[in-house]
Simulated assay, not measured.
Amino acid sequence: MAEGKSGEDIVSEYLGQNPHLTQWVESLRGLCETNKQWNARREFLLRNMETFPSVQPGVSSPSTDKLLSLSMVWANHVFMGCKYPQPVMDKIKEMADGIVVRDAPVRTTRDEIMARGKRPGAPGGDADSSGKRSKAGPNEAGGRATGRGLKSGPPPQAPADHQPFFNRLYKAVAWKLVSAGGFGPNLDHFEILQGCVESSKESLSCVFVPLKDIPDLPAGRTQKEGQVCELRCQNVYMGTGYGRDEAAAKAMASKEALKAFQGRKVTVKICRRRFRGRDVEDLVLVDDQPRNPVFPPALSYPFQAEQQGDGLS
């Protein structure tokens, strides 16, 4: 593809020269991708088609699945701040060479966020706020949340929009658990959940925060060392886990998320949760058990980022 032009110009010119690709590539757009996210991921796909010579438009194949998965991983890293094993990060960085994402989300440390919250109006965090970086990514970009942003929440139609995907994911997880001998403590819960999500052409979002940095937890727990992991898919909250390190926290979060798939169905709902000391409406995945679940405080809030974005449609 040509260089020296904007990404949209490059893509438009390329598709103009290869019109047979237009319908196929547009069919790969995710249900909840904004124009900005899709334009970037579409360019990633088209730039890298030639490195997967066995990819044939409209034909399912392992190469196509791999290219789609890598494009999701790259988009999740750029727009949601997700982190992956270093070999994967190196691979997507190489594949994305030459792609320019304008006004990409800015990563902000949790110390900077906390400092700004204590001193409203300050132009930045303390000089020594460059401690351990939270991996919450764009969900905490900008440091301060406006009341308007927090109150906006997911749109009323969001549960219905997301439900078809999670119905498919439910079937994939159910079959995977059956083949693994059922839900149990010896399973690699994250591997099962991640595999099923990726087979459905999506990716998990993992947000990590040090346990001691979460103000909404009970006082006794906040004194302990460790990490907290929150899992989302398509911006829908799935589970939270606590552990001595990120791997352990991710494993526990995956186990909690898989518990919802033990019932007869899963449902996407808008529920109330705590986020940075405030009540917000969040998209969550629940099972069919008749109870009023109490959710852990949210580590991320993607709907705030969308509200404060750049005119996303």
Results as ranks from 00 to 15, higher is better:
S313C: 14
N18I: 14
A260R: 09
A260E: 05
P159E: 00
F52A: 01
V207S: 11
W175M: 15
R110V: 15
K151I: 08
R221L: 15
H77Q: 08
S71W: 02
R41F: 09
D213N: 11
P53G: 05
P155E: 06
R278M: 12
A219Y: 11
K212D: 09
G98F: 08
E191S: 07
Q223F: 12
V59W: 00
A122K: 08
K259E: 00
N76R: 13
S134F: 05
V266Y: 01
L217G: 08
G131S: 08
F166G: 04
G121T: 06
Q304H: 13
P105N: 04
C82E: 00
V100F: 11
G98V: 12
V284F: 05
G277A: 03
L285I: 11
N186S: 14
Q262S: 10
D111M: 15
A260Q: 10
P19L: 05
L285A: 06
A115K: 09
L283I: 13
L68N: 06
A104S: 08
E94R: 14
Q23G: 09
F79G: 08
A104I: 12
I10H: 03
R232A: 09
V197N: 02
T51H: 06
L312F: 10
S203L: 10
C206Y: 02
R273L: 13
R232Q: 07
L70F: 13
P185I: 08
F79P: 12
P302S: 03
V284D: 01
L177T: 14
D9I: 12
A75N: 08
Y84L: 06
I192H: 05
D288F: 06
E50W: 02
N235G: 14
N35E: 00
V178K: 14
K259C: 12
D90I: 12
K259V: 13
S134G: 12
K255L: 07
K83I: 14
R148F: 11
S254K: 01
I270N: 07
